[in-house]
Design a protein around this nucleic acid. Structure first.
Length: 222
DNA sequence: ACCCAGGGTCATA
DNA sequence: TATGACCATGGG
């Protein structure tokens, strides 16, 4: 049985190297949730443009979005890619919120476990999107696992390439206990953002390890 | 021209 | 439960 991986040390190194990312400053909780769907497997710039276009069209509210004609919705979100798929998912999200008074903030009052299960029940919301909403929308102490996390943890020798979502998430939750209050939630939010930031610089398809701040990485070169 | 980007669903075995 | 096809635009 090997010792626990230095997860929190990774966080500290990334924070020192890149600074606080202050991710996802959405205008409203619904804007954040819609953005979480629109950014799925897509570059942020396209998703952000789609959110802006929805806002300009006055459609950045559950009821307004439900009232949009399908083909018009397609045109608004086209820059985010997968526009037919994502239109359907946004509609499912808006219909889900209708059952909660069109009020995400009220939805977020639910107990965490029940809230997560409810989100996962919405068409188009999987684990990563659900946890993004919990972390960045509902300010809950939940770490968001993504492909970068999987690749980085594997590269560090902390996990197998096909480690499950839960396995990776529990590694972080274990190292950075969620019961540490609101400060912990902020750390999880920063940690995920820092991993994405780091991946763009150093851990793309080919490892660019020169100058990498993760000094304990087996592939690190000074 | 190719690769990939802040995933998830669905059909199939 | 575990793969694979599919979805689509935009930037490097």
């Amino acid at each position: 049985m090997m010792s626990a991986p230095p997860v929190h040390r990774l966080f500290t190194l990334l924070l020192a190297a890149y600074g606080a990312q202050r991710w996802w400053p959405a205008r409203s909780a619904f804007a954040m949730m819609a953005g979480a769907v629109l950014v799925q497997n897509t570059a942020w710039t396209g998703a952000a443009l789609a959110v802006r276009r929805l806002e300009e069209a006055g459609a950045l509210h559950p009821a307004a979005l439900r009232a949009l004609e399908e083909t018009w919705l397609w045109e608004l979100i086209r820059p985010a890619g997968y526009f037919r798929v994502k239109a359907k998912r946004l509609r499912a999200l808006a219909e889900f919120l209708q059952g909660h008074g069109d009020d995400p903030e009220r939805l977020f009052q639910q107990e965490l476990g029940a809230l997560r299960r409810a989100l996962l029940g919405v068409h188009g919301i999987g684990q990563e999107t659900a946890d993004s909403i919990l972390c960045y929308g509902a300010a809950q102490p939940i770490f968001v696992v993504d492909a970068y996390t999987r690749r980085l943890f594997h590269r560090l020798g902390w996990s197998s390439p096909q480690a499950s979502y839960e396995t990776l998430q529990s590694m972080v939750h274990h190292a950075m206990p969620p019961d540490a209050g609101p400060a912990a939630a902020e750390e999880f939010a920063e940690f995920h953002a820092l991993i994405v930031r780091h991946a763009k610089r150093h851990c793309r398809a080919r490892p660019l390890c020169i100058g990498c701040p993760v000094t304990f990485c087996p592939m690190h070169r000074p």
